[in-house]
Structure formats: structure tokens, C-alpha cells
Design a protein around this nucleic acid. Sequence first.
DNA 1: CATGAATGAGGGTTCATTCAT
DNA 2: TATGAATGAACCCTCATTCAT
Lengths: 188, 188, 188, 188
Amino acid sequence: MRSGAATKEKIKRAALELFVQKGVDAGGMRDIATASGITEGAIYRHFKGKDDLTWQLFGENFSAFAKTLSDLQASENTTADKLAAMVRGFCRLYDEDETLFRFLLLVQHGQLGKVTADMPNPIDVVQDVIQAGIEAGEISSPSAPEATAWVFGIVLQSATFHIYGRLDGTMSARADGLCRACLAVLAL
Amino acid sequence: MRSGAATKEKIKRAALELFVQKGVDAGGMRDIATASGITEGAIYRHFKGKDDLTWQLFGENFSAFAKTLSDLQASENTTADKLAAMVRGFCRLYDEDETLFRFLLLVQHGQLGKVTADMPNPIDVVQDVIQAGIEAGEISSPSAPEATAWVFGIVLQSATFHIYGRLDGTMSARADGLCRACLAVLAL
Amino acid sequence: MRSGAATKEKIKRAALELFVQKGVDAGGMRDIATASGITEGAIYRHFKGKDDLTWQLFGENFSAFAKTLSDLQASENTTADKLAAMVRGFCRLYDEDETLFRFLLLVQHGQLGKVTADMPNPIDVVQDVIQAGIEAGEISSPSAPEATAWVFGIVLQSATFHIYGRLDGTMSARADGLCRACLAVLAL
Amino acid sequence: MRSGAATKEKIKRAALELFVQKGVDAGGMRDIATASGITEGAIYRHFKGKDDLTWQLFGENFSAFAKTLSDLQASENTTADKLAAMVRGFCRLYDEDETLFRFLLLVQHGQLGKVTADMPNPIDVVQDVIQAGIEAGEISSPSAPEATAWVFGIVLQSATFHIYGRLDGTMSARADGLCRACLAVLAL
DNA sequence: CATGAATGAGGGTTCATTCAT
DNA sequence: TATGAATGAACCCTCATTCAT
């Protein structure tokens, strides 16, 4: 049914924005319903409950992000190029939908535990690239997990600073700097 | 009269641990009371409410952390030494009370907005050091806020990976690597 | 969907009776729910809270009473007839729903402050009639507010005595006496 | 013990003022203690509990008022003079301690039921005077209770209007008018 | 004897979820 | 099917009272 899928999307978007604004716990099903233009009961035709809604919101976007990163790195040859592509990709996605990434950062502590090993995972994507770089001798750094933490930290904390107003402009405008920082850290 | 200060400390510790385990919203006053070995009502002699309790927990430790960082950097002369002292200091504190830092990371999104400009702030401490380094020509990097985001990201994301089991051992054992990464990123 | 308006009326009636029996503060939402045959939470679909419920109960009936008095006096020509009509009207209403007037008397001290100038107000209705009577030379009495206090006092205190068992029978049976007393006091 | 009695008086006065300001239920023992300059626990050395405190406050003043009225009427000979003396006495007392009478009016609904038949009762005092007046043929009115309601209503409602700002100045300044109204109502 | 921390029951209220219509 | 009224459990919090100090 066409309108069914459209409604589901409206609910998801409304929930996403509400959760970012007020937090997941403070954003009630009543608010979501109102913002979606439907009624409370109708939400349960599309989602099993609030947990399910939150998880779909997180899981889908988390996986999609991983898939995008994976595709981006697959188009490049060297480790440096792969990393750069991913960093630039993140910046573009962030600029396109800041609310989505704020949501991902906001709820990660509650949802990361539900991520299964067979789900595409952005951390694993990056870590695999770095691992390959180490094995190819392109990276003179410590363990892949450690290096992955550094790279993720540089990028995500910059986004966090952006959210809190400590950095302005677009993230894409900072992509070059971020790339250089990541490469420096990996001694590439 | 039963000892007030001791009870207050018990409440704070119980709340800290509960919040880390289940999240602030899921950790109820009932649970805190039970874990503290007192009754719900008694909490309200020591804290105005749950918000006040959460804020005291965050604010005090946030400020204390800033103060510690500030003292650590003050004992060193070069920017590199100052940063290294702060990174090592963080690792030591983290190892001493992992729960505390998990709490700080967990609730930051909800509490950072309440931090006033006159409160000691760890981010400002680091940023001031970096700013001074830039002005002294010791750092060849972009803006201080940007560089601060990188340094913070490297350290905090490593801690986050540690929390989620992606990195094991102590943080102190990783301090050298973290220092090197931070210096690399600042092109020191 | 269960009928909303009917439930709201049931809540109002249950609250009215409970408040009269035990006082507003002693009458809990729990009791109101039980007496209404619903659950506590359901009350909040119809009223914002206990204050709102109390105020709706008071405000609506306060205004309706004022409107009734206003209509009654409008049908008469002389000041004496207007007053008599209002006194008799009050007695009839009181006899028809004693509980309602006990409630109005009971909560007046807490609610009168919320009455806005644009709401129909029984005191103003009576005062306007008396004021007009003074201006028409029909009443040889002091200021209208003072005379209004006397008239209200005579009628309301009789009702109060009735409530406390110092006067029995119906108020309507006493209407003639009350009218005479009011006219005497106004030297009509 | 001197200071014991003084403390008890301080508690009573603080409670009286608090109850008038915020209502009996909203005025807590904590507030009373603070306003009295003592601690919560100490109140229980002077009163069995809040109910006891409230009742002592009401009962004593209710009785004292009755006693005063009784003395005042005893000094006069005619019914008219007795009533006038009581009305003037009430006005004087009201002007001397408005808070006290506001308290009496405020809590009457909750406390009147505890008044025993052997306690001095202002209503009975007035009613006895009126009853005697009827028997002496000085009053051409209906039953004594009815007439008592009228007289009480005239005086108390004027005080109520004064409290709510519908009448200003002192009550004593209105005593003549009140006397005339009372006599008119009794056809004296 | 005063203190004020602790109790424990109850307060009003919110909210994810269910279900009669 | 969509609605929104109703549920029921849990929430945070208040308060008169007790009691260890």
C-alpha cells in the first residue's frame, strides 16, 4: 500500500526530530503521533512499540551509513584514498541531514548493544580498511582498533563540536583538515 | 541525628552507578534509594530533586576534572609537555574511576547546556593550551577549536572503545600512543 | 471509542461530591477515579490536572449561577421585584442541588482569586441591581457594595446554617422571610 | 517554663499567618517551624500534631470570641444595645487582628464539626440574645435561628467583602451601618 | 530538650500500550 | 482501518510524623 509506507516514513521522521529535540525518553508517543498527523493507536500498526521504532530508526541508518562508507572505500585503491573518501562522505552526509547524525550520536549508548555482528557496522568498515593498510605496510601505527578509535574520534568529535556551536560552517568545508589529521595520526 | 554528609555521598555513588548501568531516565529514585540503603523521601533532604542530583553529579565532577587538567598543564612548560600531562592525567583518572567517566560521557548531551561560562571547563582548558601553542608557533595547525576537537576526539573515542570492549587493558597503558597521536595531529 | 463527554460528566459529579464530603485537598484523584468508575490516568484525558478540574467545577457553576441571576432580574421591573426573583431563584437552585452550593461555598476562598473581570459574577449582578436601585431613589441605603454584602450575607449565611443543621426544611420555604429581610435592610 | 510558653505562642502565630496565606493544607510543618525559628521536631513538644495545632488555633479563638461577645452583651440592657455592642465588638476585634478572623473564616468548614456543645459558641451567644428579645417582644421576626443567620450573614459577609477588597477602610468605620442593618432585619 | 535526618504512605501526574467503537 | 478513550504501572515528589543523636 502506498500510503502505508508514506505514513511510516512520516512517523519515523517525526520521531527522529522529536528525539533529537527533547531526547528519546522525553519524546512521547503522543507527540510523535501529533507531529506525524496521525493518532497514537495508529503508530502501533507500523511499529511494535516505541523500542521497535527507536531501534528501526537507529539500526537502519546505522547500517545504511556503514554501507555507504563501504561503497565509498571500495571505489578507491590506496588506504589514504579510501580513508579520505570515507571522511568526505561522512561530511557530506552530515551536512545533508544533521538531525540524523545528532540522533545517531544521541542514542548510540542505548542502541549499540543491540547491534548484531552480522549487521553492517561503520566502525568495522573503517577498521577493516585500516587493518588492510597495516598489513600492506602503508600504516605505521599501533593496532587497528586503536587507530580506528583515533580516526573516529577526530571526525565524530568535530561533528560534536559543530553541534554544540564550537565549530561553525559546514562539515564539508572542514573535510580537508579532517583528512590531514586522520592521515597524520596513522603516520601515512 | 544521623550523619548527613555520609548519606549524601552514598546517594551520589549509588546514583552514579545506577545511571551508568541503566541510563538516567531508566534509573529511578526508588532504585537509588534502595541501592543507598535509605528511603526515597530521604533523598530529598539532600537534593532538590532528580535533576538537581544529576546536575550535582555532573557539574561537580566536570569542574573537578577541568581543575585537575588545569593543574596538570600548569606544571609543564612546553605545549607538548602540557598536552602529554593532560592525556596521561585523563588516563589515570579514567582507570581509577571508569564508572565516573562513563557517566560523564553518558549524560553530557543533557547536561552540557547547563554549564555556565564561569565554570571550569575541560574543553576550555585544553583549548587554551592549544591556543597558546599556536600563538607561540609551536603548533602548525588550523584553528584552536578545530585542533581541540581532534585531541578530545582521539582520547575520548579511545575511552569509548574501551567501554564497549573494542579496546582492553588499562587506558594508562595506551597513554603513550594517545600522546603521540595528539602531537601528530597538531604537527608538533 | 468510549464516550468522552459522558465520562467527563461522571468525573465532575464524582469530584463535586467527594470534595463536598472530604474537602478538596483530602479528596484525592484516586478517590475521584474510583467513584467515577474509571482509572486515575483516564481523568487526565479530560482535565489537565486537579487544579483544572476544580476550577472547571467552580468556574462553570459560578458563571452559570450568575447568568441565571441575571436572567431572573431582567424579567422584573422594580428593584424589589428583581431582588425577590433572585432570592427565590437562589433558594430553588439550592434546593435542587444542595451539593453544588456546598461546593461553591467550600472552595470559594481558593477559587475566587481566579475569577476574571470578564466572567459573569453573581456578586456583580446583585450589586448592579442595587446600584440601579440607589440611582433610581428606590433604595435608601449606603454604598452599593455595602448593601450587596448585607443581602448576600443574609442569604448565604442562611444557606450555611442550613448546611450545618441549624435550619431545616427547604430553602424555598424560607424565601419569603429572606426577601423581607433583604428589603428591610435596603429600607425598601 | 517561660520560654516554653513563648515558643508555643510563636508557633501558633506563625501557623496562623501561614494558614491564612497559603491555606491549611498547603502550609506545612516545615514552613511553620522555619517561620517560628525552631525545628520541625520541636513543634511536637508543644502540639500533638498538625491537627491538634489547627484545632487549638481555631478552638481557643472561637471560644474567646464567644466569651467576648457574651461579656459585651451582658453589659447592656436592651436587645438592641446588646446587638450593637456585639457588632461593634466584632468590628474592633476584626480591625485589631484581621488575620485571625480570616483564619476563622477560612477553616470553619473543617473545624466547626469538632466544636462541642459545652464550648462557648459565638453563634449561640447571639442566638440567645435574639431568642430573649423575641420572648421579650422586642423583636418581631421569625425564629431565632433564622434571625441569627441574618445577623451573622450581614456582619460576616461584610468582613468577607473587606477581605476580598470589595470594601475598604476599617470595619469599625462601618459599625453604625451594620448595626442599623441588623436592627432593620429584626424589625427592632 | 532540641535537632534534623529518616520514614513511609500517599500525593498528583505521565506514558507506552491496549481495545471498544 | 483508524480513532482516542481507557488502562495500569511506574514516575517524581511531599509531608506529617518519628527517632537516633
